[in-house]
Design a protein around this nucleic acid. Sequence first.
DNA 1: CGCCGAGTTGATCAGGCTCAACAAATGTGG
DNA 2: CCACATTTGTTGAGCCTGATCAACTCGGCG
Lengths: 247, 247
Amino acid sequence: MTIEINKGACIDLFRSLTDDLTAELIRQAQTRTISPGALIFGAGSSGRVVHVLTSGCVKMVRTTVRGERVITRYVKPGEAFGMSAVFDEPYRADAVAVTSCIGLQWPSNLIRDTILRQPAAALDAMRSLDARLGEMEARMLGLSSGRVEQRIAHALAELADKFGRPGPNGIEILIPIRHQDLADLAGTTLHTVSRTLGTWETQRQIRRGRCRIVITNLAGLLGLARASTSSDPRPRRGHRRAGRRSG
Amino acid sequence: MTIEINKGACIDLFRSLTDDLTAELIRQAQTRTISPGALIFGAGSSGRVVHVLTSGCVKMVRTTVRGERVITRYVKPGEAFGMSAVFDEPYRADAVAVTSCIGLQWPSNLIRDTILRQPAAALDAMRSLDARLGEMEARMLGLSSGRVEQRIAHALAELADKFGRPGPNGIEILIPIRHQDLADLAGTTLHTVSRTLGTWETQRQIRRGRCRIVITNLAGLLGLARASTSSDPRPRRGHRRAGRRSG
DNA sequence: CGCCGAGTTGATCAGGCTCAACAAATGTGG
DNA sequence: CCACATTTGTTGAGCCTGATCAACTCGGCG
């Protein structure tokens, strides 16, 4: 078995390790295949294993008792998730398979020991945590300042960047995205997402199928995102949902 | 000089190091005193030093070109900030002194080398990054789902937890907090903050002075935060600001 | 064929943002 | 020590965005 997984994608967490060490770790891993929609682990459960996704897509979902939901992150192959297990802390979010997935998992103390013995790996892990912090901060900026249309456009752009592939009609987002998912990313409701995407489709900015989105005009979308009415310099305020789950 | 700083507070980043090592690092540090309101470093500037606050309070502020602002974090003594310098990445946010401050700073490569040589420190750093990630996720949940009143109450509660001290009239928040700051924490405007705090003061939940807040009834506040009208089970939706700076 | 999940669409309405103007506290200079 | 500028905070009026409610369509599946 080679270290490479899925056509060149490799495990971010082990980027700094020697091939031998990585191979050894992969040998020690438990492989797990997950079917779409399945819960890989639930928020609050005490994390005893660290996961790495090797193929497919996983979303991390945080939910409040009142039913409000946020997708904190989409995981793509090569990325680790459930890292809080390293610190013997419970998982913060549900990990839900978006597609069929293959994952590797290790007992958290094995990962911890590896990090303790391989400082370069520790630095890599820190770097990726820090990068995620930066992303979250940027999302917070968007959440607290942008209008809904902007936030949806931005969420789409990020999905396109992470899971998009150029296709005949534009950038196809390869993973299934429900309107509720976009709402959970953008901090709005599936109703507003539906209306907004509807408008964009008539404007030929995007194309839609069931759980499928193709972005025909990414620049146009981001233009919309930047200024909803370019001739009108003053920004408009928006609303905020108080989530009662609807999905 | 002892390792302890400011009545027992010590440097989180070096918690796992031996006293000798910590002392040595502190010897190598450059001490810096900062006056209130001063900019310690600006977002975007290439970070060449890592900071640790030893006394006072620093806020990390992210701003968009349009003038929307978010306070991503309040730093208290013992905590590190500007950690992205470790990865030779520019600072993501402005670091602004809230009070008079004393800080230590090191060239980022010195911290990096320390982390590489002291894996336990790496794990500590990872833990704190992960904890901050969790906080940000929780804040995102609040931002995208709660109503403004809840978010302000929650922001106050966190400030009370981090910078509060029991006083004759309740928990005093020891650092100066402008309404604009609360707005930047809660994702709203200073106007709404003013009105909301006004209501709470007449309800004897809090007391206010200029840039000073005392929480008389924390439980009550959080109760308000949980359900704005307890008799009415259905949550109300809210609005969202589109920040044109006003502070 | 009934059920469920996903998506659509219309009507309603209120939360809180925007605009605007003032008041009070702080700082600065002469 | 007073006049003036700046920062911080207050309050009112208006109104827009987008949440909520509700009802319906479409497609897949057992």
